[in-house]
Design a protein around this nucleic acid. Structure first.
Length: 389
DNA sequence: TCTGGGGTCCTAGGACCC
DNA sequence: TCTGGGGTCCTAGGACCC
Protein backbone atom coordinates (compact mmCIF):
# COMPACT_ATOMS: atom_id res chain seq x y z
CA UNK A 1 0.00 0.00 0.00
CA UNK A 2 1.38 3.38 -1.01
CA UNK A 3 1.73 5.80 1.84
CA UNK A 4 -0.26 9.03 1.51
CA UNK A 5 0.66 11.81 3.89
CA UNK A 6 -1.43 14.95 3.98
CA UNK A 7 -0.08 18.29 5.16
CA UNK A 8 -2.58 21.06 5.92
CA UNK A 9 -1.55 24.68 6.23
CA UNK A 10 -3.95 27.55 6.98
CA UNK A 11 -3.38 30.48 4.62
CA UNK A 12 -2.12 33.74 6.18
CA UNK A 13 -3.80 32.46 9.31
CA UNK A 14 -3.79 35.41 11.75
CA UNK A 15 -4.69 37.86 8.98
CA UNK A 16 -7.44 35.54 7.67
CA UNK A 17 -9.01 35.32 11.13
CA UNK A 18 -9.01 39.10 11.37
CA UNK A 19 -10.60 39.44 7.93
CA UNK A 20 -13.23 36.90 8.81
CA UNK A 21 -14.03 38.50 12.17
CA UNK A 22 -14.08 41.98 10.58
CA UNK A 23 -15.56 41.60 7.09
CA UNK A 24 -14.73 45.22 6.29
CA UNK A 25 -11.05 44.15 6.14
CA UNK A 26 -11.67 41.63 3.37
CA UNK A 27 -9.76 42.37 0.19
CA UNK A 28 -7.50 44.80 2.03
CA UNK A 29 -3.86 44.67 3.10
CA UNK A 30 -4.05 43.42 6.70
CA UNK A 31 -0.83 43.28 8.71
CA UNK A 32 -0.90 41.53 12.08
CA UNK A 33 2.03 42.16 14.40
CA UNK A 34 3.77 44.80 16.44
CA UNK A 35 2.63 48.41 16.63
CA UNK A 36 3.95 50.52 13.75
CA UNK A 37 6.57 52.79 15.22
CA UNK A 38 7.77 50.13 17.65
CA UNK A 39 10.62 47.64 17.35
CA UNK A 40 8.60 44.58 16.50
CA UNK A 41 7.97 42.59 13.34
CA UNK A 42 5.12 41.36 11.16
CA UNK A 43 3.58 38.15 12.53
CA UNK A 44 1.34 37.52 9.55
CA UNK A 45 -0.15 39.44 6.66
CA UNK A 46 -2.91 38.99 4.09
CA UNK A 47 -2.17 38.20 0.46
CA UNK A 48 -3.24 41.75 -0.39
CA UNK A 49 -0.41 43.01 1.86
CA UNK A 50 2.07 40.66 0.21
CA UNK A 51 1.63 42.57 -3.03
CA UNK A 52 3.54 45.39 -1.31
CA UNK A 53 6.44 43.06 -0.63
CA UNK A 54 5.41 42.62 2.99
CA UNK A 55 6.05 39.23 4.61
CA UNK A 56 6.13 37.76 8.09
CA UNK A 57 9.21 38.51 10.20
CA UNK A 58 9.74 41.78 8.34
CA UNK A 59 10.38 44.74 10.70
CA UNK A 60 7.06 46.49 11.24
CA UNK A 61 8.67 49.84 10.45
CA UNK A 62 9.56 48.56 7.00
CA UNK A 63 6.05 47.17 6.47
CA UNK A 64 4.62 50.55 7.40
CA UNK A 65 6.98 52.31 5.00
CA UNK A 66 5.81 50.03 2.19
CA UNK A 67 2.11 50.34 2.90
CA UNK A 68 0.91 53.42 4.79
CA UNK A 69 -2.73 52.54 4.12
CA UNK A 70 -2.38 49.03 5.49
CA UNK A 71 -4.58 47.84 8.31
CA UNK A 72 -2.14 47.22 11.15
CA UNK A 73 -3.55 45.02 13.89
CA UNK A 74 -2.18 43.60 17.15
CA UNK A 75 -1.85 39.84 17.64
CA UNK A 76 -4.97 38.36 19.30
CA UNK A 77 -3.46 35.02 20.15
CA UNK A 78 -6.36 33.80 22.28
CA UNK A 79 -8.76 34.20 19.39
CA UNK A 80 -6.41 32.46 16.95
CA UNK A 81 -6.03 29.52 19.32
CA UNK A 82 -9.81 29.27 19.53
CA UNK A 83 -10.26 29.25 15.75
CA UNK A 84 -7.33 26.89 15.32
CA UNK A 85 -8.89 24.38 17.73
CA UNK A 86 -12.19 24.33 15.89
CA UNK A 87 -10.41 23.72 12.59
CA UNK A 88 -8.14 21.01 13.99
CA UNK A 89 -11.27 19.25 15.25
CA UNK A 90 -12.50 19.00 11.66
CA UNK A 91 -9.17 17.68 10.40
CA UNK A 92 -8.98 15.02 13.10
CA UNK A 93 -12.16 13.45 11.72
CA UNK A 94 -10.31 12.13 8.68
CA UNK A 95 -7.56 10.03 10.19
CA UNK A 96 -6.55 8.54 13.53
CA UNK A 97 -2.97 9.58 12.77
CA UNK A 98 -3.09 13.32 13.39
CA UNK A 99 -0.12 15.53 14.27
CA UNK A 100 -0.48 19.19 14.94
CA UNK A 101 2.77 21.00 14.15
CA UNK A 102 1.87 24.56 15.06
CA UNK A 103 -1.16 26.81 15.47
CA UNK A 104 -1.82 26.76 11.72
CA UNK A 105 -0.37 23.46 10.51
CA UNK A 106 -1.09 19.77 10.87
CA UNK A 107 -0.49 16.40 9.29
CA UNK A 108 -2.82 13.47 8.85
CA UNK A 109 -1.88 10.08 7.48
CA UNK A 110 -4.39 9.06 4.81
CA UNK A 111 -2.68 5.77 3.98
CA UNK A 112 -5.29 3.07 3.51
CA UNK A 113 -8.30 5.35 3.97
CA UNK A 114 -9.37 5.05 0.33
CA UNK A 115 -12.04 2.37 0.91
CA UNK A 116 -13.59 4.26 3.77
CA UNK A 117 -13.25 7.87 2.64
CA UNK A 118 -12.57 7.77 -1.09
CA UNK A 119 -9.46 8.94 -2.91
CA UNK A 120 -7.14 11.14 -0.83
CA UNK A 121 -7.62 14.19 -3.04
CA UNK A 122 -11.39 13.85 -2.60
CA UNK A 123 -10.86 13.76 1.15
CA UNK A 124 -8.66 16.84 0.90
CA UNK A 125 -11.37 18.69 -1.01
CA UNK A 126 -13.93 17.76 1.63
CA UNK A 127 -11.66 19.12 4.37
CA UNK A 128 -11.09 22.36 2.45
CA UNK A 129 -14.83 22.88 2.04
CA UNK A 130 -15.66 22.13 5.64
CA UNK A 131 -12.96 24.45 6.98
CA UNK A 132 -14.13 27.24 4.70
CA UNK A 133 -17.74 26.72 5.75
CA UNK A 134 -17.08 26.55 9.46
CA UNK A 135 -14.28 29.05 9.91
CA UNK A 136 -14.34 31.09 6.70
CA UNK A 137 -10.68 30.36 6.17
CA UNK A 138 -8.91 28.81 3.20
CA UNK A 139 -6.45 26.02 3.76
CA UNK A 140 -3.71 24.68 1.51
CA UNK A 141 -3.21 20.95 1.35
CA UNK A 142 -0.29 18.88 0.12
CA UNK A 143 -0.47 15.15 -0.58
CA UNK A 144 2.72 13.14 -0.96
CA UNK A 145 4.39 9.80 -0.18
CA UNK A 146 6.07 11.24 2.94
CA UNK A 147 5.99 14.02 5.53
CA UNK A 148 8.73 16.13 4.03
CA UNK A 149 7.29 16.20 0.52
CA UNK A 150 3.75 16.76 1.80
CA UNK A 151 4.94 19.93 3.49
CA UNK A 152 6.62 21.17 0.32
CA UNK A 153 3.52 20.23 -1.69
CA UNK A 154 1.14 22.30 0.43
CA UNK A 155 3.52 25.23 0.07
CA UNK A 156 3.63 24.76 -3.72
CA UNK A 157 -0.15 25.05 -3.98
CA UNK A 158 -0.62 28.12 -1.79
CA UNK A 159 -2.96 29.88 -1.33
CA UNK A 160 -6.14 27.79 -1.23
CA UNK A 161 -4.19 25.00 -2.88
CA UNK A 162 -4.44 21.27 -3.29
CA UNK A 163 -1.22 19.85 -4.64
CA UNK A 164 -0.25 16.20 -5.03
CA UNK A 165 3.21 14.70 -5.47
CA UNK A 166 2.75 11.21 -6.93
CA UNK A 167 4.99 8.35 -6.01
CA UNK A 168 7.75 8.07 -8.61
CA UNK A 169 7.65 11.78 -9.40
CA UNK A 170 9.47 13.04 -6.31
CA UNK A 171 12.62 14.34 -8.00
CA UNK A 172 10.64 15.78 -10.88
CA UNK A 173 8.64 17.83 -8.36
CA UNK A 174 11.73 18.90 -6.43
CA UNK A 175 13.37 20.11 -9.64
CA UNK A 176 10.66 22.76 -9.94
CA UNK A 177 11.70 24.28 -6.60
CA UNK A 178 14.56 26.56 -5.61
CA UNK A 179 17.05 25.77 -2.84
CA UNK A 180 15.30 28.28 -0.59
CA UNK A 181 12.02 26.41 -0.98
CA UNK A 182 13.52 23.41 0.83
CA UNK A 183 12.35 23.23 4.43
CA UNK A 184 15.42 23.44 6.65
CA UNK A 185 17.49 25.50 4.22
CA UNK A 186 18.03 29.09 5.31
CA UNK A 187 20.28 31.99 4.47
CA UNK A 188 23.47 30.53 5.91
CA UNK A 189 23.11 27.22 4.11
CA UNK A 190 22.39 29.00 0.80
CA UNK A 191 25.61 30.99 1.22
CA UNK A 192 27.67 27.91 2.04
CA UNK A 193 26.24 26.00 -0.91
CA UNK A 194 27.08 28.89 -3.20
CA UNK A 195 30.72 28.45 -2.20
CA UNK A 196 30.49 24.96 -3.69
CA UNK A 197 28.87 26.48 -6.77
CA UNK A 198 25.57 24.86 -5.87
CA UNK A 199 22.72 27.16 -6.81
CA UNK A 200 19.90 24.76 -7.64
CA UNK A 201 18.45 21.46 -6.53
CA UNK A 202 19.68 19.41 -9.47
CA UNK A 203 23.24 20.48 -8.81
CA UNK A 204 22.87 19.79 -5.11
CA UNK A 205 21.70 16.28 -5.94
CA UNK A 206 24.92 15.59 -7.85
CA UNK A 207 27.04 15.96 -4.68
CA UNK A 208 27.89 12.94 -2.51
CA UNK A 209 26.76 12.96 1.10
CA UNK A 210 30.34 13.03 2.41
CA UNK A 211 31.18 16.31 0.68
CA UNK A 212 27.99 17.96 1.93
CA UNK A 213 28.65 16.69 5.44
CA UNK A 214 32.22 17.96 5.48
CA UNK A 215 30.95 21.37 4.38
CA UNK A 216 27.81 21.67 6.52
CA UNK A 217 28.20 19.19 9.35
CA UNK A 218 27.20 15.56 9.52
CA UNK A 219 23.50 16.01 10.25
CA UNK A 220 22.92 18.81 7.76
CA UNK A 221 24.78 16.94 5.03
CA UNK A 222 22.69 13.84 5.48
CA UNK A 223 19.54 15.95 5.74
CA UNK A 224 20.14 17.67 2.40
CA UNK A 225 21.30 14.49 0.68
CA UNK A 226 17.99 12.83 1.53
CA UNK A 227 15.82 15.91 1.02
CA UNK A 228 16.77 16.48 -2.63
CA UNK A 229 16.04 12.83 -3.42
CA UNK A 230 12.55 13.04 -2.01
CA UNK A 231 13.56 10.67 0.77
CA UNK A 232 12.09 11.87 4.04
CA UNK A 233 14.99 13.30 6.07
CA UNK A 234 12.89 12.80 9.21
CA UNK A 235 11.34 16.12 10.12
CA UNK A 236 8.63 14.62 12.29
CA UNK A 237 9.86 12.98 15.47
CA UNK A 238 7.55 11.72 18.15
CA UNK A 239 9.82 12.30 21.09
CA UNK A 240 11.09 15.75 21.90
CA UNK A 241 14.46 15.41 23.58
CA UNK A 242 14.86 18.71 25.32
CA UNK A 243 11.68 20.60 26.04
CA UNK A 244 12.04 24.16 27.29
CA UNK A 245 9.89 26.99 28.65
CA UNK A 246 10.98 30.58 28.32
CA UNK A 247 9.98 34.23 28.13
CA UNK A 248 11.87 37.12 26.61
CA UNK A 249 11.36 40.85 26.43
CA UNK A 250 12.71 43.42 24.03
CA UNK A 251 12.82 46.78 25.78
CA UNK A 252 11.16 49.66 23.94
CA UNK A 253 14.49 51.44 24.42
CA UNK A 254 17.86 49.84 25.22
CA UNK A 255 18.54 49.92 28.93
CA UNK A 256 21.50 49.98 31.29
CA UNK A 257 19.40 50.15 34.43
CA UNK A 258 19.97 46.98 36.48
CA UNK A 259 16.77 47.54 38.46
CA UNK A 260 14.79 47.60 35.24
CA UNK A 261 16.36 44.34 34.13
CA UNK A 262 16.02 42.65 37.50
CA UNK A 263 12.33 43.47 37.58
CA UNK A 264 11.84 41.75 34.25
CA UNK A 265 13.80 38.69 35.41
CA UNK A 266 11.76 38.48 38.60
CA UNK A 267 8.51 38.70 36.67
CA UNK A 268 9.57 35.98 34.23
CA UNK A 269 10.78 33.73 37.08
CA UNK A 270 7.26 33.73 38.48
CA UNK A 271 5.54 32.97 35.21
CA UNK A 272 7.99 30.18 34.34
CA UNK A 273 7.42 28.53 37.73
CA UNK A 274 3.65 28.84 37.28
CA UNK A 275 3.88 27.14 33.90
CA UNK A 276 5.96 24.31 35.33
CA UNK A 277 3.42 23.73 38.09
CA UNK A 278 0.48 24.09 35.70
CA UNK A 279 1.85 21.47 33.35
CA UNK A 280 3.14 19.20 36.12
CA UNK A 281 6.66 19.49 34.84
CA UNK A 282 10.08 20.04 36.33
CA UNK A 283 13.56 21.12 35.31
CA UNK A 284 17.07 21.51 36.68
CA UNK A 285 18.46 23.97 34.15
CA UNK A 286 18.00 27.73 34.09
CA UNK A 287 19.20 29.80 31.14
CA UNK A 288 19.26 33.49 30.31
CA UNK A 289 19.62 35.29 27.02
CA UNK A 290 21.09 38.74 26.50
CA UNK A 291 20.93 40.82 23.36
CA UNK A 292 22.91 44.04 23.08
CA UNK A 293 22.20 47.15 21.06
CA UNK A 294 24.25 45.79 18.15
CA UNK A 295 22.07 42.67 18.13
CA UNK A 296 24.88 40.41 19.32
CA UNK A 297 23.29 37.72 21.45
CA UNK A 298 24.65 35.66 24.31
CA UNK A 299 23.27 32.88 26.44
CA UNK A 300 24.32 31.36 29.73
CA UNK A 301 22.92 28.42 31.59
CA UNK A 302 23.32 26.54 34.83
CA UNK A 303 22.20 23.08 35.74
CA UNK A 304 21.54 22.31 39.35
CA UNK A 305 21.78 18.98 41.14
CA UNK A 306 18.21 19.33 42.29
CA UNK A 307 14.91 19.99 40.62
CA UNK A 308 13.81 23.61 40.67
CA UNK A 309 10.96 23.98 43.13
CA UNK A 310 10.29 27.71 43.41
CA UNK A 311 10.54 30.96 41.49
CA UNK A 312 13.09 32.43 43.93
CA UNK A 313 15.64 29.84 42.89
CA UNK A 314 14.96 30.56 39.20
CA UNK A 315 15.40 34.25 39.92
CA UNK A 316 18.59 33.90 41.93
CA UNK A 317 20.18 31.66 39.29
CA UNK A 318 19.11 34.10 36.59
CA UNK A 319 20.72 36.96 38.50
CA UNK A 320 23.90 34.99 38.97
CA UNK A 321 24.09 34.24 35.25
CA UNK A 322 23.20 37.80 34.34
CA UNK A 323 25.92 39.25 36.56
CA UNK A 324 28.40 36.82 35.05
CA UNK A 325 27.52 37.76 31.48
CA UNK A 326 26.89 41.49 31.59
CA UNK A 327 29.77 43.92 31.78
CA UNK A 328 27.58 46.54 33.47
CA UNK A 329 27.73 49.25 30.84
CA UNK A 330 26.71 47.92 27.40
CA UNK A 331 23.06 48.86 26.76
CA UNK A 332 20.75 45.87 26.64
CA UNK A 333 18.09 45.40 23.99
CA UNK A 334 16.57 42.11 25.09
CA UNK A 335 16.55 39.94 28.14
CA UNK A 336 15.24 36.39 28.21
CA UNK A 337 14.93 33.72 30.86
CA UNK A 338 13.83 30.12 30.80
CA UNK A 339 14.24 26.55 31.91
CA UNK A 340 15.33 23.67 29.70
CA UNK A 341 15.59 19.93 30.00
CA UNK A 342 11.99 20.02 31.16
CA UNK A 343 10.46 16.64 32.01
CA UNK A 344 7.22 15.41 33.52
CA UNK A 345 6.85 15.76 37.30
CA UNK A 346 6.88 11.99 37.72
CA UNK A 347 10.08 11.55 35.75
CA UNK A 348 12.16 9.23 37.93
CA UNK A 349 15.32 10.46 39.55
CA UNK A 350 17.50 8.89 42.22
CA UNK A 351 18.02 12.18 43.97
CA UNK A 352 14.35 12.26 44.80
CA UNK A 353 15.01 9.65 47.46
CA UNK A 354 16.38 12.49 49.51
CA UNK A 355 14.28 15.29 50.85
CA UNK A 356 14.72 18.46 48.84
CA UNK A 357 15.42 21.60 50.82
CA UNK A 358 12.94 23.89 49.04
CA UNK A 359 9.71 21.96 49.47
CA UNK A 360 7.96 24.61 51.51
CA UNK A 361 8.57 27.34 48.97
CA UNK A 362 7.14 25.08 46.32
CA UNK A 363 3.93 24.67 48.29
CA UNK A 364 3.58 28.46 48.34
CA UNK A 365 4.04 28.63 44.56
CA UNK A 366 1.47 25.92 44.02
CA UNK A 367 -1.02 27.78 46.16
CA UNK A 368 -0.48 31.01 44.24
CA UNK A 369 -1.01 29.18 40.96
CA UNK A 370 -4.20 27.56 42.22
CA UNK A 371 -5.61 30.88 43.40
CA UNK A 372 -4.72 32.49 40.09
CA UNK A 373 -6.55 29.73 38.25
CA UNK A 374 -9.70 30.11 40.33
CA UNK A 375 -9.81 33.89 40.35
CA UNK A 376 -8.71 34.93 36.89
CA UNK A 377 -9.36 38.65 37.34
CA UNK A 378 -7.51 39.03 40.62
CA UNK A 379 -3.94 40.15 40.23
CA UNK A 380 -1.72 38.21 42.58
CA UNK A 381 1.93 38.93 42.36
CA UNK A 382 5.01 39.61 44.42
CA UNK A 383 5.28 42.96 46.18
CA UNK A 384 8.56 43.79 44.44
CA UNK A 385 6.85 43.68 41.06
CA UNK A 386 4.25 46.26 42.00
CA UNK A 387 6.27 49.49 42.10
CA UNK A 388 6.04 51.84 39.15
CA UNK A 389 3.28 49.81 37.55
C1' DT B 1 14.88 47.05 5.90
C1' DC B 2 17.23 47.28 11.31
C1' DT B 3 15.55 43.13 12.94
C1' DG B 4 9.51 39.58 18.12
C1' DG B 5 8.82 35.69 20.77
C1' DG B 6 8.56 30.85 21.42
C1' DG B 7 10.63 26.96 20.26
C1' DT B 8 13.86 22.56 18.36
C1' DC B 9 18.03 20.48 16.94
C1' DC B 10 23.06 20.32 16.06
C1' DT B 11 28.04 21.06 17.04
C1' DA B 12 32.16 21.42 19.48
C1' DG B 13 34.93 21.64 23.48
C1' DG B 14 35.79 20.55 28.29
C1' DA B 15 35.08 17.81 32.52
C1' DC B 16 34.81 13.56 34.42
C1' DC B 17 34.59 8.57 34.73
C1' DC B 18 35.91 3.78 33.82
C1' DT C 1 56.71 10.16 31.52
C1' DC C 2 55.01 12.93 26.32
C1' DT C 3 50.41 10.24 26.93
C1' DG C 4 43.90 5.66 25.04
C1' DG C 5 39.45 5.42 24.06
C1' DG C 6 34.65 5.61 24.76
C1' DG C 7 30.62 7.42 27.05
C1' DT C 8 27.99 10.97 29.21
C1' DC C 9 26.97 15.38 30.94
C1' DC C 10 27.31 20.29 30.67
C1' DT C 11 27.90 24.73 28.30
C1' DA C 12 27.76 28.27 24.57
C1' DG C 13 26.67 29.37 20.20
C1' DG C 14 24.35 28.90 15.80
C1' DA C 15 20.84 27.59 12.20
C1' DC C 16 16.26 27.23 11.36
C1' DC C 17 11.08 27.21 11.83
C1' DC C 18 6.26 29.21 12.74
Amino acid sequence: MNPVICHLDLDAFFASVEQNDNPEYKGKPVIVGAKPGGRGVVSACSYEARKYGIHSAMPISEAYRRCRNGIFLPVRMKRYIEVSKSIMDIIKDYSPVFKQISIDEAYIDLTGTEKLLGAPHKTAEKIKNRVLEKAGITISIGLAPNYYLAKLASEAGKPDGLFTVEKGHEEEFLNTLTLKDLWGVGKTTITKLKELNITDIKKLRSFPEEILSSMLGKASGRFLYNAVRGTDPGIIHNDIKNHSISNEVTFSKDTKDPENIKKVLLGISGSIMSKLIDKNQKSKTVFIKLRYEDFSTFTAQKTSKYWITNSESIYSTALELFNKKWNGFTPIRLIGLGVSGVVSENFPDQLELFAEPDDKKKKVEETITKIKKKMKNIKLTKASLLDNE
